[in-house]
């Protein structure tokens, strides 16, 4: 069996809300192999985003272990976590979160720039990815000059650019119309196969669920089903 790229072992996350302890994630064991295209689904408050944040190194579990691409995250110090996110994780956010003052190309290059990759490599990779996501004619457009769907495609290109081990997408289609959603899912599915990058989504969106090859359902912080599909 292939070594998993994501592994959580009895992960628990408890938030303290005054005198009440809220178990956002309650003993989750999850293993994801490289190249998977997985949707993490469940109602609001089921713990999807919390689990995604812990996998992405944005939050630490109260107990349990999170291992991503061989790195055990709870052992990392803050600076090491920042570097881990920079090297291993690509993020796609619900609200796109592009840098408004940079062009599509500059936004796509940005994480590679933080990684201090050479200029030529950055430019070539950014242009190739923007072409892949169908934005070759928008290279010099700033986010405000692009539609929501186009902005999210730039965000996907940005996340993919440094070739991370995992792309974590938190409700990536929540702000998109049907056409943009279908278009974005086509692109992500294709890039998942071409680049062999692991995608993990948190979503409510049935259109995303219908395209995922694995659907993990959470409820009250626990996995209640884990189904795989041949798509």
């Amino acid at each position: 069996m292939m070594k998993p790229v994501i592994e959580t072992q009895d992960v628990v996350k408890i938030y303290h809300d005054g005198s009440i302890d809220v178990h956002a994630v309650n003993g989750v064991d999850l293993t994801i192999a490289p190249g998977e295209f997985t949707a993490l689904v469940g109602p609001s408050g089921s713990g999807k985003t919390t689990l995604l944040n812990m996998i992405g190194g944005l939050d630490k579990p109260t107990s349990g272990r999170v291992i991503v691409d061989g790195t055990q995250l709870e052992t990392l110090r803050d600076n090491e976590l920042i570097d881990f996110r920079l090297r291993k994780i690509g993020f796609v956010f619900q609200a796109y979160n592009l840098i408004p003052v940079l062009t599509a190309t500059e936004n796509t290059e940005f994480i590679m720039l933080l990684q201090k990759r050479p200029k030529e490599e950055r430019e070539a990779r950014a242009k190739a990815l923007l072409k892949e996501v169908g934005l070759e004619d928008k290279l010099n457009k700033r986010p405000l000059e692009l539609s929501g769907g186009q902005q999210q495609r730039v965000a996907v290109a940005r996340a993919l650019a440094p070739k991370p081990a995992v792309i974590l997408a938190d409700e990536p289609t929540a702000n998109l119309d049907s056409h943009s959603t279908a278009n974005l899912l086509d692109i992500m599915a294709r890039l998942n196969k071409e680049e062999q990058t692991t995608f993990l989504f948190s979503t409510h969106d049935q259109r995303v669920i219908d395209r995922a090859r694995r659907v993990v359902t959470l409820e009250d912080g626990k996995i209640i089903s884990d189904e795989s599909f041949d798509r």
Binding site: F84, R85, R87, I89, F91, F93, I99, F110
Partner: peptide, 10 residues
Amino acid sequence: GMLMSVGMNK
């Protein structure tokens, strides 16, 4: 928040 998430250091 995005910049910190994607690994821009302090």
